Every structure is written in C-alpha cells, then in structure tokens.
Computed example of a mutant assay.
Amino acid sequence: MKRSEKAEIIGQMLDELYPTTPVPLDHTSAYTLLVAVMLSAQTTDKKVNEVTPALFAAADTPEQMAALEVEKIQALIREIGLAPTKAKNLRKMAEQIVDAGGLRPDWNYLESLAGVGHKTASVLMAQWYGIPAFPVDTHIHRLAARWGLSKAKNVEQTERDLKALWPKETWNKRHLQIIFFGREYCPARNHDLTACPICAWAASKKRIREEARL
C-alpha cells in the first residue's frame, strides 16, 4: 500500500475517532497557551494543567511575568520537569514580548523567543492563530514511523513528510488527533502492534517483529 493510501485511511479513522480536537492544555490567551506549551516539554499535559492555575494567578500576562523573580517562577513550577531552566526562559521570554509590544503570528519572531522552538511556535500558530502548521513531537514522530508514513530520523523531516501526505486544511486537527490516538491506543512502551487499530495493518512486519522484542 502506498503512503498516500495509508494516510487517507488513517485520516478517515482519526476523523471518526476524534471529530473534535480540543487543545489539551488549559489557557485563556495566546500568551498563556505559549507558556503552557513551553512547560509541557518532557512533562505531561496533566501535570502542566495542575501547575498553571497557580502560575497564572500570579502572572498571566508578559508584563506580570517579567515582574516576577526567577526564583518565584521556579517555585510556582517546581513540579514541572526542567523547572530551573524553564523559569529562566519564562522570565526572559516575557521581557522579550514586552519589549516587542506583544505576541504576533510571525514564525521568525516566535522562534526567537527564549525557550521557544519550532514545535512550540507551531502549536501557537495552529491552535491560537489558526494558521496551518503541523507540530511534530517525539510521540507523533514515533507513530509516523510505526505507521510507515515516514522513515525520517528527526522530527523536522517527519513534519515535512506528514505535511506532504495530508491537505493543509487538516494539519491543525491532525496533529492533535495523532496525539490523542497515541495516548489511547498506541503507547510508547509495551505496545502490541498487532492489537492496535492502526499499527495492526499499517506497520510493516519488520516493525512489528522489532517492537515485539523490546
């Protein structure tokens, strides 16, 4: 089966399973979404949503965040992975946003902010500004490989491969659908590919054998 044929079938399955795609990170503005996405690196969305209420009560605008000491920010996010580094980045990013006059949907600008990489910028562009983007994290990268949609060795190439397989107007929902599917049916570890609704037919026999040995 061609990649394009697989992608079409997988897209139909994902649309049926997840007709709506709410953003799993709690937020009330472009800025609070950006902060939540930054915090989610190497941390579960559930943990981020447990931590952000207290953080946003103290500072839910760049101006308020820039006024906090790094130590205060770190104390508020201490349960988050990489809290010391993230606290420094949150303070620096807030200062940059204030100096620039606010957030705006500009790729170069967003990716110039402290702690904001391409994936984080992509989430903000897609889920707040509604601009077509396909954020790819390690989870989507893994599923794309399992399903035979990409042989890429890095998330950057996987993003390009997936963008080529699905229409631009589906990108913003598709990346969330894949994340939701991974959480419900396709975990990273101890996964029986033969019992998975997609892996069972989309994964190669070689891939199934390799993961069975893990």
Rank of each mutant, 00 (worst) to 15 (best):
K2V: 13
R3P: 03
E5A: 07
E8P: 05
I9W: 11
I10A: 03
G11P: 06
L17T: 06
L25H: 09
L33G: 00
Q42I: 02
K47Y: 04
V48M: 00
L55I: 10
F56W: 02
A58M: 12
P62M: 04
Q64G: 10
Q64S: 12
A67G: 03
E69D: 14
I73G: 03
Q74D: 12
L76I: 04
L76T: 01
E79Y: 11
E79R: 15
P84N: 01
A87R: 01
N89L: 07
Q96Y: 09
I97V: 02
I97L: 02
V98K: 01
D99P: 15
A100D: 08
A100F: 12
P105L: 01
N108P: 14
N108S: 14
E111W: 09
L113K: 05
L113D: 04
G115L: 04
G115Q: 01
V116L: 04
V116N: 05
V116R: 03
G117Q: 00
H118M: 11
V123G: 02
V123K: 03
L124D: 00
A126R: 06
Q127P: 14
G130E: 02
F134I: 03
P135R: 07
D137I: 05
T138M: 00
I140D: 14
I140R: 08
I140T: 11
A144V: 04
A145H: 13
R146G: 11
G148H: 08
S150P: 13
S150R: 07
V155T: 15
E159G: 15
D161M: 05
D161C: 09
L162N: 03
L162M: 06
L162T: 05
N172R: 05
R174Y: 14
H175P: 08
L176A: 12
I178Q: 04
F181N: 08
G182K: 08
Y185W: 15
C186T: 07
A188R: 08
N190K: 09
D192L: 03
T194I: 02
A195H: 09
A195K: 09
W201Q: 13
W201G: 14
A202N: 07
S204M: 00
K206P: 10
K206N: 08
L214D: 14
L214E: 15
